[in-house]
Simulated assay, not measured.
Amino acid sequence: MEQVLAVYERPYEQQYPVVCLDESPKQFLEVVEYRAADGTRLQDSEYIRHGVGEVYMAFEPLAGKRYVSIQDDHTARTWVGVIATLLDGPYRNCTRMTLVGDNLSAHKPSAFYANFTAEKAKAYLDRLEFVYTPKHGSWLDMAEIELSILQRDCLSRPMATKERLISEVAAWQERRNQQQAKANWQFTTKDARVKLHKLYPTI
Rank of each mutant, 00 (worst) to 15 (best):
V68H: 05
S69A: 13
D44S: 15
E60P: 00
L87C: 04
I70K: 08
V55T: 02
R77P: 05
R49V: 10
V55I: 13
L87A: 06
T75I: 06
Y67M: 11
A37P: 05
D38S: 08
V80M: 04
V31A: 08
Y34R: 11
A58S: 11
E60W: 01
Y67R: 11
A63K: 10
I70S: 04
G39V: 04
V80G: 00
A37H: 11
A36T: 10
A36H: 12
V82E: 01
Y47V: 13
G64A: 01
A76D: 02
V32Y: 15
Q71V: 05
L87K: 06
K65F: 11
D44K: 14
G81R: 03
M57I: 14
R35N: 00
A63S: 12
E60L: 02
R41C: 09
D44T: 12
A37N: 10
P61A: 07
R35Y: 05
A58K: 04
D72N: 12
I70Y: 04
D73G: 08
H74A: 15
I48Y: 09
Y34V: 06
W79V: 09
V80D: 03
R35L: 01
I83V: 12
G39I: 03
M57S: 13
E54N: 12
Q43V: 15
Q71A: 13
T40F: 03
G51I: 03
F28D: 08
T75C: 11
L29Y: 00
S69Q: 14
L86I: 03
R35S: 03
G81W: 07
V55E: 09
Y56W: 15
I83M: 03
S45Q: 15
T78W: 01
G51Y: 05
A63Y: 06
Y67W: 14
L62N: 10
Y34D: 11
Q27I: 06
K65H: 12
A84F: 10
G39Y: 05
A76F: 05
G64R: 06
A36Q: 12
L86Q: 01
F28Y: 12
V68L: 07
Y56L: 13
L62G: 07
Y34P: 11
T75M: 10
H74E: 12
D44F: 12
V52K: 11
G39N: 01
E46K: 14
E33T: 15
K65G: 08
V31F: 09
L29H: 03
F28S: 02
H50W: 01
Q71L: 08
E46L: 13
L42H: 10
E30M: 05
Y34N: 06
M57H: 13
D73L: 06
A58N: 06
A36D: 14
R77H: 08
R49Q: 07
A63T: 03
Y67H: 14
L62E: 10
T85G: 13
L62Y: 11
L29Q: 02
E33W: 14
D38R: 07
T78F: 05
R35F: 04
L87H: 03
R41D: 08
I48R: 10
S45P: 15
E60T: 02
P61K: 02
L86C: 09
V31H: 07
G64L: 04
D88L: 02
E54K: 08
G64T: 03
E54R: 04
V82I: 03
V31M: 11
G53R: 06
E46H: 13
R35G: 03
S69K: 11
G64E: 08
I70F: 00
T78E: 01
E54S: 14
A37I: 09
D73H: 09
T85S: 14
R66Y: 03
G39H: 01
Y47F: 15
E46I: 08
